[in-house]
Nucleic acid binder design. Structure first.
Lengths: 236, 236
DNA sequence: TAGTGGTCTAGACCACGTA
DNA sequence: ACGTGGTCTAGACCACTAG
């Protein structure tokens, strides 16, 4: 006799979420231990009394979460924490500061057009901007930014005197690919002075490169005093 | 007359990927500018000559990428870089070191059972481990780890003498939720000595808390000399 | 309140990789 | 070789929300 699963009545959850929850429970309770094969799609389809697409959607989410892996012809199996990935979300710096209850302010430090480098911005050059983002008047983030004037010629007309490049980019420019690098470094003398920290103080540095398709759009190097800032990510 | 889109013949890409590529092109070329509404599902379905589910799959991927947002009854629209999220993948430290072509080695520094804290591990206590991961014999990562013995009592039997806790966790324990925090700090005297860096040298610190459902499993604080390590994320 | 996106079903065909 | 997962179709109903 086939054992049918039925979730406790709850319309706040879609069917594929209910099924995924039940699958999570089985993994959690050791009914589906790490390394073991889980039943085939058709078996699950029958057991849950749902369409194959719905079961597949639940399974796909578990794959995204890195809890199971699927191999054609060989079924699916539970995996350990190996492939755990998290979602990193870096908000607009103004939103970040305001969400902490501080007053945001902005200061443009430098702005000039430089010749292109390494095949980037070789026609129109690169717009180079250095600016400071402050929380309650205290330096919070130092931004070094270059904008590719070949792919974003409109940027040349932006003064960036009262709002930073990021505000403009968010409003105007979509991106298909972002590379983010997070590192630590000791503050050099000039940067330390701007950020009002002692020389050699630890900094958390976030570097982002943004592309639309293959076209390089912009690059930012964001330096923060280590005490004031950390990056947080949540699982999928 | 309805204009039909047909992609260049390419069987290496699934239909929903082809459709998504074409949508990306339209966003890139400004046919669908930032802030504008894009055609409704049924219109796209007809234009691409695909089933609604296929078009929806392409759109869903764009939502994941943070390029469009969808509102019921009001259609979908292109958004800027606001909600760009990236995928953060932190591999096993051994794999990280070996992928750089270095020899991995491990050293257990400390291991003891401590009483629980804040409702975590209050029955069986917490297993507390401090260990070092080395690349070509040089300190690469200092790991402070606590394992909740209420939820993972099997950990008490693990000596962690020749392999680290992470190797065991990966093999045995699945997780549904991971919180990762990345920060910078100056090396305190004791840590500086272990990592063979000068006191107050900058460190990149990765902290991870892992859960299965609501149950707290383990927590790790991973300290790296800033020169040797950075975290990289790619867009979805 | 009407129309949009969100979900689900039942079916089909196909490519791929493991046994 | 063949059974698995991957993809796609055509249809239906529903919930939410903007107008």
């Amino acid at each position: 006799m086939v054992k049918h699963f039925s979730a406790p009545y709850d319309r706040s959850m879609s069917r594929h979420d209910e099924i995924r929850q039940e699958m999570l429970r089985r993994i959690n309770d050791g009914e589906w231990p790490v390394g073991s094969d889980i039943p085939h799609e058709m078996v699950l389809t029958e057991e849950f009394g749902a369409a194959r697409g719905t079961v597949r959607r639940a399974l796909s989410t578990l794959v995204e979460q890195g809890l199971i892996e699927r191999r054609k012809r060989a079924g699916s199996r539970v995996v350990g924490q190996t492939s755990q990935t998290s979602k990193l979300h870096i908000p607009l710096i103004r939103e970040e500061i305001e969400s902490r209850g501080h007053a945001y302010s902005y200061r443009l430090l430098e702005r000039e057009v430089k010749p292109g480098l390494h095949g980037i911005g070789t026609r129109n050059g690169l717009l180079w901007v250095r600016c400071l983002h402050l929380a309650d008047g205290a330096p919070f983030q130092l931004e070094h930014r270059t904008i590719n004037l070949d792919t974003l010629p409109q940027a040349a007309e932006q003064p960036f005197r009262v709002t930073g490049p990021n505000e403009w980019l968010v409003r105007e420019v979509p991106a298909t690919r972002v590379i983010t690098r997070i590192s630590a470094a000791a503050a050099e003398a000039e940067i330390a002075e701007i950020l009002a920290v002692p020389e050699h103080a630890p900094l958390l540095i976030v570097s982002r490169e943004t592309f639309m398709g293959e076209a390089h759009l912009t690059e930012a190097r964001l330096s923060h005093p280590a005490e004031q800032y950390q990056v947080t990510t949540l699982s999928i």
